[in-house]
Write a protein that binds this DNA or RNA. Structure first.
Lengths: 214, 214, 214, 214
DNA sequence: TATGAATGAGTATTCATTCAT
DNA sequence: GATGAATGAATACTCATTCAT
């Protein structure tokens, strides 16, 4: 545990990524993981830095070596999770001859089933419940998740219209209607009816079918 | 902050200390109004009792004469607003010969336009953002607003199905799809895109038309 | 209940002691009684003026018509009780030919038995527990109860010495030793062993006999 | 208040913030000492945590690192003092051939003189004045000090009776009479006559002699 | 780098007291 | 006189943050 500092530094320099750096990264991850759990369970205001440290099994002062303030920690946590989540729908990936409906079914429906399993719904909830206090989070979320998805959807719906798959152009004007059930599901499952959850994937699919019906 | 000092002084003098039913009611209303504003603007955690009192133009201790704790004040405020909001859709009010689609258009669409104007969206947001800390509020909201609306919608959709207005029974199974755009709109306007709002009424209407389309 | 004010005043003046004065005195007594109970049960610090008023079945502001402050109320309560308690032992009352021991037995022992029954021990306890905060109370108690008793006892012991009933003069120097068991009993019963009380009268008597033994 | 500002500043600088067992112990001692002084001077209710901290020359929040509440601080302080005070009289220590009277004189009388000097009378007073609010303290006091002493005394008096030193068995029934003057002295000196104190040791001794007189 | 003792600003809550009715 | 709504000073307690070790 107690090697001479110089020896440690040399080693680190020699490898370019010494054990201390690795440990540092591990500590950082532990802090983020612990903080996320706490924020999800208690919300920002009721989460204490001490609880985060305890959960990460480190000292109370250590998180401050990685994040200057509690606010920064929160932002860092959410930023990481949001940045890590890629948009699942990319119009460019549509197979030749594949209808838009088929494409959306193929890509979005499985993604929906992942929404809750991979904790994305929980992150979305956090952005919703704490967004008023942290506009940055909302900005990030919008930029990384919300807006890109709408852009893709709009393009897809435009293609569907152009290719005659959609009779009317109204959906092109309101791509929101495709994702409304998702948000409804998040609100329902995460905030309003935590016991009796709806199946977001199914809801999305049924809605999709109805909207694309001729 | 927003009043001239002299106006404040006059008010203070006007507000007496003696017993008076009228005064009591007025004070209570002032507290509730002030508290609601503060809670909406700052959230529960960042609202101080002192700020509420200041906003209501009363002394720091006065709110405690009406609500024993900050929690109780919050609950009281939200409870009052939620209880006061009646569900606008009552299947029994459908005019003879009126289609379900026409009925929903007639009743829901104007209600949607009221959602934001009358502050109901704001209350919904508060229930969403603080519901984790105050499960009672979620219970109330569900009991008074959410569940009753779904019940009515389900009955209407069943009628639409029975009367041949709907070809498929899938909507009867998922009345949620009718209100999904509303929640999407609330989330969008109140939490995600406070600058660029969507028109919840229009969204609801377009969605309605698409879902009822033959 | 609602007579004209003037009629009431006239009546009061006519009798010289009208019903309002009588009622006033009754209210005052109710306040004192209620306050004493509260102070005994909760101590000064934990007694609220509101609790006193509630117990006296009057409004919160009414006690202030009789006592300007809570301190004054406390002082008034104790003062009244202490002043009302006469010293039981008066050397002048000794019957001709009666030994001092016999006299003390005749007068003190029954008084001791009253100490607890009539709430004097409770008052003494209140003076002990709150005396540090209210030196006035201690002064009153000393002046009205403590010192006079010692004076009488000293005189009696001197007489006993002069009349040969006591062989030694040591008790004359320490009349305290006669009352020590009383205070011990008060401390024991009121503060240390509220469940298993000692019989103060018996303790006093046994001690008396031992001290007067030849 | 009692220190020059510069002295205070120096101290503050000397007190570091880092972990240190020695510092911890010193801080804890400072808190307990300061709290005891405050409680003795003001009583529990009138002692503020801020005053304790100021007296200990630490920050307002520091005492809470050692005692979770004001109640716990008070209990901790008294508990420590009561636990630290051993009963001076142990029947087993009686020298062979030593009379009980001589033994009591040898052991108790010096102890009495210590009672006030070492602050035991003050602790006893605190237990008396705050015992109603803190029954635990009374329990501790009884268990550690009061009951053990009575047990020893009863044994000694029984021995004195058995060995013919006492003619009557009445004292065996009432060992309280031996300690009555002590409590009288405490009440007198600590609460009733803080100016004109009695000599508890002398009172005890005179009483002892009178009770053991043949 | 990590630690955790110490800091002190911030806040909910209480309650003696006032005074218009 | 009595009432009780309103006042606001006082205070226990929390917790993000700092920094000597």
């Amino acid at each position: 545990m107690r090697r001479s500092t110089s020896a440690q530094t040399e080693k680190a320099k020699a490898r370019g990524r010494g054990p201390s750096l690795e440990k540092t990264a591990r500590t950082r991850d532990a802090i983020i993981a612990a903080a996320l759990q706490e924020f999800l369970e208690k919300g920002f205001a009721d989460t204490t830095m001490e609880a985060v440290a305890r959960r990460a099994d480190i000292a109370k002062g250590t998180p401050y070596r990685y994040f200057p303030t509690k606010d920064a920690l929160f932002e860092g946590v959410v930023r990481q999770r949001v940045a890590g989540a890629l948009v699942e729908v990319n119009a460019a990936n549509r197979a030749p001859g594949e209808t838009v409906l088929a494409f959306l079914r193929r890509t979005m429906v499985p993604a929906m089933h992942d929404v809750e399993r991979k904790g994305r719904a929980a992150i979305a909830r956090l952005v919703l419940t704490e967004g008023a206090r942290f506009p940055v989070l909302v900005d990030i979320y919008r930029r990384e998740m919300f807006d890109p998805l709408l852009v893709e959807l709009r393009a897809l719906l435009q293609a569907a219209r152009d290719e005659g798959e959609l009779k009317s152009g109204v959906l092109v004007e309101h791509p929101d209607l495709l994702i409304a059930p998702i948000w409804y599901g998040i609100v329902h499952n995460e905030l309003l009816h935590r016991r009796r959850k709806v199946d977001i994937g199914e809801l999305f699919e049924v809605n999709l079918d109805l909207l694309f019906r001729r």
